[in-house]
Simulated assay, not measured.
Amino acid sequence: MDFTGKKILITGSGAVGGLSHVTAKLIAARGGDVLITGRDQEAGDAALRELIDASASARFVRADLGTVSGVRALADEAGDVDVLIDNAGLVPFGATETQDEEAYDAAFAVNVRATFFLTAHLIPGMKARGGGSVVNISSTASSRGPPELAVYGATKAALESLTRTWAVEWASDNIRVNAVLPGPMTTTKTVAALGPDVGGMGKTTALARASDPLEVAEVVAFVASDQASYVTGAVVAADGGRTAI
């Protein structure tokens, strides 16, 4: 998986120990020029320092993807990219009857609208350079129907639908579009919130464990890379068999 000479934009990657940060570190180690983003400048600076310390070619851009203007600003700042990994997202918990409009709108704004318009802004550049790769990060919530995640699951189902449509729409332009569906992971944030066993969620998988984020990042990197040249329109599960149960 050689990313030498390629520019990669990874949204929602401005926190050390998250899936996108681990993916950024992996891709940078394989020659990619990585642009990471997040809403928190301090956290983003820390994530960038770790990448730079690992001799990565990387920079951080603070981005608010909750507004269309913020999405456009990020697209302008990023310029031409060869690979776009859409991972920024909000996870509103709550029973359907208690879900408020503000949380609902915010989740769809960041998880769906931002992905839609950021991708739309960057596709013309990919077309002009003869191709590219888009990877949307989904979730098992898109199909399993976990309680109190109705809004989040709906946003991820929308992303999977966009993945299939875009794969067909841009196939003739040599632009591949796929989604990766992670299972429970021991990210820094998840472990801090739920403990080292991530609330027992690993036991809900066929492998009966949560993954290290690097295990999923390897799949994201493969799907994004030229090695996956015949893969498009796919939702690739890296979930320990959770969706098979």
Rank of each mutant, 00 (worst) to 15 (best):
A43G: 06
R30T: 12
S133G: 05
E148G: 05
R39H: 04
L48R: 00
T204M: 14
A179Q: 09
L122G: 03
G14V: 12
G130I: 14
G14N: 07
T186W: 07
R242Q: 14
A47I: 10
L51S: 02
A157G: 15
D197R: 10
Q41R: 09
S57Q: 14
T37M: 02
G233D: 07
V135C: 07
G79V: 12
A154F: 13
A238I: 12
L207E: 11
H21M: 10
L65K: 04
G66R: 06
V68Y: 02
Q227V: 15
E102T: 15
A95Y: 05
G199N: 12
R144Y: 03
R242Y: 08
G18Q: 08
R176I: 14
M126F: 11
E160T: 14
A73E: 11
G66C: 08
T188H: 11
F108Q: 01
R209M: 14
G241R: 09
K6W: 00
G66M: 10
S69K: 10
D226P: 09
A221Y: 04
P184S: 11
V34N: 00
L118K: 06
M126C: 11
P182W: 12
E215I: 15
V68R: 07
D82S: 00
G131C: 11
A234T: 13
A141Y: 07
A234G: 05
V83K: 00
V151A: 02
T155A: 06
N174V: 14
A244R: 11
A206I: 15
A210Y: 08
L26K: 04
E77L: 13
K25H: 12
V235R: 04
D86I: 15
D33N: 08
M201V: 14
A54M: 09
P213C: 09
T204Q: 11
K25V: 13
R113Q: 10
L149Y: 10
A56D: 03
G66A: 08
N111D: 10
G79D: 06
S229W: 13
F117W: 12
N174H: 14
A114G: 05
G145L: 07
I27G: 00
A88N: 06
I8W: 00
